[in-house]
Design a protein around this nucleic acid. Sequence first.
RNA 1: CGUUCACAGCCGAUG
Length: 246
Amino acid sequence: AHTYNSLIHGLCKRGLVDKALNLFSEMVDDSEIVPDAVVFNTLINGLCKSDRLSEAVRLFDSMSSRGVSADAHTYNSLIHGFCQRGLWEEASRYFGKMEGSGIPCTVVTLTILIDSLCKSGKTEEAYEIFKEMIRSGKEPNVMTYNSMMNGLCLIGKLEEAQRLFESMAEKGLEQNVYSFGVMIHGYCKSSRLDEAIQLSKEMQKRGLKPNQVTYTTLIDGLCQARKDRTAERMLTVMQSNGLSPD
RNA sequence: CGUUCACAGCCGAUG
């Protein structure tokens, strides 16, 4: 069964959801093998990522008849799918279903909500959830912080984002390449290039290697600001770090 | 640690 699960996951990741569904049918026909929650979750997630939400829901509905219970991963994938489509009422219906089934929402669930709200410009709502997490002891993790900081940067609240960025360290959360990427992008978009470059140095002091995304962000920011000369230098630095431009 | 969920850039595609 793990063999099937791995194959199905691989197909889903490559966007070959139909092939994955075919393999799933074979799996179901094989009386030796009983599909578990993991394979349902993998397929539901694959369908959501391909914008095939109604099929995902159908598969979700079929789980109980096969004696498999949905878990947090199942709900999170569906909620993520609905949020990405802006189907907030559906998302909140499944959020309710989740808790109604005795499955408490997780940090991942709340991070999905925060991230999606921020990307839809509903940053204040997201921030309320974020603050509520801290109050209630459902501690935001690095990804939660990254999503929230990104949202704040997108509406120009750079100082607030920077405050969160600094508070991560105090909480013992280690900023990763994404954390720096979010802040660097925020500063670049506000034409605060010195601060962006400063951060890229700071991350190296921490032993984090800027990647192609980091450099592309900086180079784009420098070009937009008409600092072509500095941008070229940055490209050289990037190549000397073993990264090729794409 | 055998399998499943959430985070940053540019470009292209479609509108």
